[in-house]
Nucleic acid binder design. Structure first.
Length: 885
RNA sequence: AGGCGCGUAGCUCAGGGGGAGAGCGCUGCCUUGACACGGCAGAGGUCACGGGUUCAAAUCCCGUCGUGCCUACCA
């Protein structure tokens, strides 16, 4: 591409397409375990295979990409594994909805045909999200793409299941679980969300069997009373101690049930007596186990009443509730009803109210696994960043419950367990068994349940690398370096990967876990389709360009805080892309021939050269440090401020004169070299954040070859750091700003040249400023310039005092005395505020005695400076008085 | 009920013991040979409130108020 024909404004689309293809064709992000370099590996949090990219994915993957590209440019051996998960319940739901629309169902199809149908749907829509990730610029090694249901991963799942079973860490049994009657499957505790809903608290009266009155109990689910098998009270509750062991008659049902004593009962709540329904309540189930209570199931898998419910058999749970309440009322067993708000459990997929239900399920015994997962974070083998999440992780791990892993759906890894019809033996096996090892029988029935999707995701960091085989990838890249994820799957996923990784690999799955924010809308609301406030990243990319979206997300990604995404912000950063584009365009107009940058001390370098090169070191250092500390926003904002406020606003403007046709050749050559050097480093520093525009500009840069994405990330060159140059330049910038300010306030046209006199009492400083007074001449229109250690106010000048210098700006007749006084008065007020501030501190004996010497010294210098400024301003005002103005 | 955050410029947010920062917005001026997706300049803040620690608090501690989220078996 001819650099002189770069478009006037940055047009992202063609550029993005071109580089996506170029990187892909070159295999730019392919990892090779045999290559040298410290390993840097990331496994992607696998999105749902049938999903599509939302803004959370965009953030998550942008951050991973920043890390991947940064480390790749640092010569590390980078592997970023992409892939998707099969999202059992969600995907099955989608396909079932399709079938329903066609007037059929999965039951009509049968298991095999249904699964085939899901694979067809997966083939259609699957991979779309990976294409979208590519578009985002994610530098994954797409040749290593994995899917939780592919052959390799399925083998890992089976191996893990069998081993855990053999070790007694997987068991099957009748326990209470959460049941979603719509999805018709068991759910783990994590898959149930709490929703506050308005309900009622019904107070029921259960009469004693001996006719001596009644006990009152309160419930939010009166229909479950049909399954009550006890009433419980606290053992120390004096109101009831005499009644423990007594029997009450369950209204409607007529069953006699006992009053039992158990410390879980709260004496304060309600009447202090609670009905016990072991089949349909977690607490009651536990309590039932302790007291050997009967388990009476009154709700079936569709949340309809069972035959146990007698007259209510077949009724939906809510219909049954109404009838039961009415019937109790008729019997006089309903004491009262009060409004009550309660937290109900709903299915995280379909929001249907779940029913606690006793059923035969498979569980992972988490205790022993959690212990090691807890220890690994406590002893620092894995760091969670930001650290405050560690506490949340600990709390969960310490209170972990066994994990229900069986799901009564079809889409997923079918549990490798068989029951022998002959002898009832349970067979769990790596290979499908043909006969029963116990009795030799050949009639074996396979378990129909599949595993929780998170069971396979838990293996992701090693299953994607080839486990259970000892592959080169596994050896080279496990443990992975860092996991980047949002906090909402800390328990679902991160905790479980920790448990499985430690158990099967003997090592943590990742050294660092970086937890990033949730993206919310501009009002701070969680984005959701139903609210209609979702920001579609694909649409944003189309409108503003991918780099602008990426840059916005990283610039807002401060640790420990949610991101509120407003469109104006994205637009603002699109302008930044354009700014960089045009800065480069300007540079390329001059960069036909580029030589070496002279060494730091060289006389060939101007003050501006030395300054920008020194600031470049500062930017390089802070960008590096920020990325390594996962402070993405700091890194992005430093890129922004260096490019815009330092390089464009000052260096380019000053360099224009050095590049002019009438400038001496060697001056032009040096300026070109510095320009090229700084721009080149800017492109490298910015590349992890905005890969497309930087790669494009790099390719247009004269004398550069190869991919920017493979170029070395800049390192700090200590010999380029020049504090004196920075200080001098800063002072000159201050002076320029002051002159402009004075002129702007007085309405002097920018084109009108004025006299300027700068007075500084430090002779060495005066000399330094004078040596580089070009900076002033180039920045403001000046007719005559003097920089002197001594001097009075020239006639017709407005004076301003800044730092250690006094600036007189001659404006001739326009310099009315009021303006001069106003200007000086403003400076005097500022100086006095400063003076008082320093004086107050130094007047404090404790401060002088206890504060560190350098801090006190700084205050003294500040006070002296302020005093000196006040003197100068007052002298100036005195002169005005004397001259009778 | 516990736990974790947050409250800083009109808006969105950084910062986190030693003179209050950015972007956007706002007000003036500028069609200056990279860029009007631009330039120059400016206005704007008791850092929620009350205590405490400290020589020094926006920053650390305690409390209050407001606000958000997470966890939990008060039926």
């Amino acid at each position: 591409m001819n650099p002189n024909t770069l478009a006037k404004a940055y047009e992202p689309h063609a550029v993005e397409d071109r580089w996506l293809r170029a990187w892909d064709d070159a295999g730019a992000f392919r990892a090779d375990p045999a290559s040298p370099g410290e390993a840097f590996s990331i496994v992607i949090p696998p999105p749902n295979v049938t999903g599509s990219l939302h803004i959370g994915h965009a953030l998550n993957n942008t951050l991973q990409d920043v890390l991947a590209r940064y480390h790749r440019m640092n010569g590390h051996n980078v592997l970023w594994v992409p892939g998707t998960d099969h999202a059992g319940i969600a995907t099955q739901n989608v396909v079932e909805r399709q079938l329903a629309a066609e007037g059929t169902s999965r039951e009509d199809l049968g298991r095999e045909a249904f699964i085939e149908r899901v694979w067809t749907w997966k083939a259609e829509s699957g991979g779309r999200i990976l294409a979208q990730l590519r578009r985002l610029g994610a530098s994954c090694d797409f040749s290593r793409e994995r899917f939780t249901m592919d052959d390799g991963l399925s083998r890992a799942v089976r191996e893990v299941f069998v081993r855990l079973f053999e070790e007694g860490l997987i068991y099957r049994g009748n326990y209470i679980i959460n049941w979603c009657p719509r999805c018709r499957t068991a759910l783990s505790a994590l898959e149930v969300e709490r929703e506050e809903r308005a309900g009622h608290l019904w107070h029921l009266r259960y009469p004693f069997a001996d006719g001596s009155g009644a006990v009152s109990v309160a419930t939010t689910r009166p229909e479950t009373m049909l399954g009550d098998t006890a009433v419980a009270v606290h053992p120390d509750d004096e109101r009831y101690t005499a009644r423990v062991g007594a029997r009450v008659v369950l209204p409607i049902v007529g069953r006699e049930i006992a009053i039992v004593a158990d410390p879980v009962v709260s004496r304060e709540f309600g009447t202090g007596a609670v009905k016990v329904t072991p089949a349909h309540d977690f607490n009651d189930f536990e309590l039932g186990l302790r007291h050997g209570l009967d388990v009476v199931r009154v709700l079936d898998l569709d949340a309809k009443m069972t035959a146990e419910a007698g007259a209510y058999h077949g009724l939906d749970r809510y219909e049954a509730r109404k009838r039961v309440v009415a019937d109790l009322d008729a019997l006089g067993a309903l004491e009262r009803v009060e409004d009550y708000k309660l937290g109900v459990g709903v299915c995280y997929r379909c929001k249907t109210v779940v029913e606690p239900m006793v059923s035969k399920q498979w569980f992972v015994k988490t205790g022993p696994l959690a212990e090691r997962a807890l220890a690994a974070v406590k002893d620092g083998r894995t760091h969670i960043i930001p650290v405050q999440w560690e506490k949340t992780y600990y709390e969960w791990m310490e209170n972990i419950r066994d994990w229900c892993i069986s799901r009564q759906i079809w889409w997923g890894h079918q549990i490798p367990a068989w029951t022998c019809e002959g002898c009832g033996e349970l067979i769990v096996s790596r290979r499908d068994p043909t006969s029963c090892p116990k009795c030799g029988g050949v009639k074996l029935t396979r378990e129909t349940d599949v595993l929780d999707t998170w069971f396979s995701s838990a293996l992701w960091p090693f299953s994607t690398l080839g486990w259970p085989d000892q592959t080169p990838d596994l050896t080279r890249y496990y443990p992975t370096t860092v996991l980047v994820t949002a906090f909402d799957i800390l328990f679902f996923w991160v905790a479980r990967m920790m448990m499985m990784g430690l158990h099967f690999m003997g090592e943590v799955p990742f050294r660092d876990v970086y937890i990033h924010a949730l993206v919310r809308d501009a009002e701070g609301q969680k984005m959701s389709k139903s609210k209609g406030n979702v920001v579609d990243p694909l649409e944003v990319m189309s409108r503003f360009g991918t780099d602008a979206l990426r840059f916005t997300l990283t610039a807002l990604a401060a640790q420990g805080r949610d991101i509120k995404l407003a469109e104006e912000r994205i637009e603002g950063y699109r302008h930044f892309m354009n700014k960089l584009w045009n800065a480069a365009r300007f540079c390329y107009l001059h960069l036909d021939r580029v030589g070496e940058v002279p060494p730091g001390s060289s006389a060939a370098l101007t003050l501006a050269d030395r300054w920008i090169l020194s600031r470049l070191q500062n930017a390089t250092e802070s960008i590096r440090a920020s990325i390594e500390a996962f402070r993405f926003n700091d890194a992005a904002l430093r890129v922004y401020s260096f490019v815009w406020s330092e390089f464009c606003d000052w260096y380019i403007e000053l360099a224009k004169h050095d590049l002019a046709h009438d400038a001496p050749d060697e001056r032009r050559a040096t300026a070109r070299a510095v320009l090229a050097r700084v721009l080149g480093d800017i492109l490298k520093l910015a590349h992890p954040f905005m890969p497309f525009i930087t790669e494009e500009l790099w390719s247009a840069m004269p004398g550069q070859g190869g991919f920017l994405t493979h170029a070395p990330f800049p390192r700090v060159e200590a010999e380029r750091v020049d504090r004196t140059a920075e200080d001098t330049m800063e002072t000159l910038i201050e002076i320029v700003k002051r002159i402009r300010d004075v002129r702007a306030q007085l309405g002097v046209s920018p084109r009108m040249a004025t006299e300027v006199q700068v007075v500084t009492h430090d002779a060495e400083r005066a000399e330094r400023l004078a040596r580089d007074s070009e900076v002033l001449r180039r920045s403001v229109a000046i007719s005559e310039l003097a920089i002197v250690p001594e001097g009075g106010r020239p006639a017709g000048a407005v004076t301003s005092v800044v730092g250690s210098v006094t600036v007189h700006v001659g404006i001739g007749e326009g310099a009315d005395i009021a303006a001069i006084r106003e200007r000086l008065g403003k400076d005097l007020a500022t100086a006095r505020v400063d003076h008082d501030h320093h004086a107050r501190k130094l007047g404090n004996e404790g401060f002088v005695a206890r504060a560190p010497e350098d801090v006190v010294e700084k205050e003294r210098a500040g006070l002296a400076g302020a005093l000196e400024r006040i003197e100068r301003i007052e002298a100036m005002l005195g002169i005005l008085e004397e001259s009778g103005l």
